[in-house]
Amino acid sequence: MLDSLYIGASGMQAQQQNVDAISNNLANVNTAGYKRSRIDFEDLLYRAVPSGRDSSGQFAATGRMGMGTAMAGSSKVFTVGDAKKTAEPLDLAINGQGFFEIALPDGSVAYTRNGAFRLDQDGMLVNQDGYALVGAIQVPPESTQVRIDSVGRVTATLTGQRDPVELGQIHLANFTNPAGLTAVGDNLFQATDRAGEPIIGNPGENGTGGLAQGYLEGSNVRLIDEMVSLILAQRAYEINAKVVQASDELLSISNNLYR
């Protein structure tokens, strides 16, 4: 009936999704390897409205009026977060682009930037949720020092031996369009058609970064930016609520034309 009512509502709806994304970013400010989400908005279809009649009495469709706003899409921003020193030998940070490959129990592969690995009861290198790193790297119980170099070679010094033994190689996956990956929770991403095929290689190849042992990548959420966005989103929500209120007033006034 009154388009401005629905347009105001579309603005409120969009800002609510915006606040959802901002609050998720803020909640994960301390999650290792977390990538912030961002939401893009777009204006909705314009339609021509008859804006009057011209001198010959014909309707002239010169006015074009928009139909509100909507979320164009939500995407992850894959800028590299700050590396934080942890001194844990199994903490790895990727110094640039690339993802660790994680084998899920259902046989599929997921991708993560969170390099906080540990050993399970069999000495296998697994992530925090116990899913194995692809490559099946097993650390023998008698090893005293595990070293992972920047190109992903894993070596260990065993008790009573002088020379380190090689345990395996960590590969990284890279994507043409990382923003097209789907976040599935637990800091994991899944490959999609939009992201392209994973390109697997050693760290430092195919545009990926080298590994840094004893470091973890912090989230790339910047608190101040998120706070500013939150304030703006809240105010934008408020003003769109006012639009709904004003539309309501218009309806009320026109209902009271007749006493």
Binding site: S4, S10, N18, M67, A233, V243, A246, S247
Partner: peptide, 18 residues
């Protein structure tokens, strides 16, 4: 007036549109 409000609401709904 109704159309003018329509235009205003479109502008305000797109406050965050790049």
């Amino acid at each position: 007036d109704v159309q003018r409000l329509h235009v205003i609401s479109q502008n305000l709904a797109n406050l965050s549109t790049t």
